[in-house]
């Protein structure tokens, strides 16, 4: 999914009242952090889940413990993440 497709999707979510404007902005801001470090992330974190939340990078092995951990650390904030060199489904 391209940046434009992702951004457009979030617009659709906001338009449908499925996501707030603030959540959209937060998620895109975290994606921008991820994208700015993408080369390093893909080099240094193969086979791990890497995400940005509240402008900080977090790394995990399994999706649910990862999500649980970051949501407890930063309640109410959005995480942008990608599994590096593998897919979740």
């Amino acid at each position: 999914m391209t940046d434009e497709e992702f951004s457009s999707w979030l617009d659709t979510e906001v338009d449908g009242n499925l996501m707030s404007i603030a959540q959209r902005q937060d998620l895109l801001a975290q994606k921008a952090h991820f994208d700015s470090e993408r080369a390093m992330i893909e080099r240094d974190f193969p086979n791990q889940i890497v995400g940005y939340i509240a402008n900080e990078r977090r790394v995990g092995q399994e999706i649910h413990p990862f999500l649980e951990s970051v949501n407890q650390e930063f309640p109410g904030r959005m995480i942008y993440f990608e599994p590096i060199r593998f897919s979740l489904a």
Binding site: M1, T2, F6, Q23, L27, Y80, E82, S87, L88, A89
Partner: peptide, 20 residues
């Protein structure tokens, strides 16, 4: 009515995105 907590533009086979 679900609470969005995050997302990824590249999480599934073929580079598909998901929202959590």
């Amino acid at each position: 009515d679900l609470l969005p907590t995050g997302g990824s533009a590249s999480a599934t086979t073929g580079g598909g995105g998901i929202l959590i």
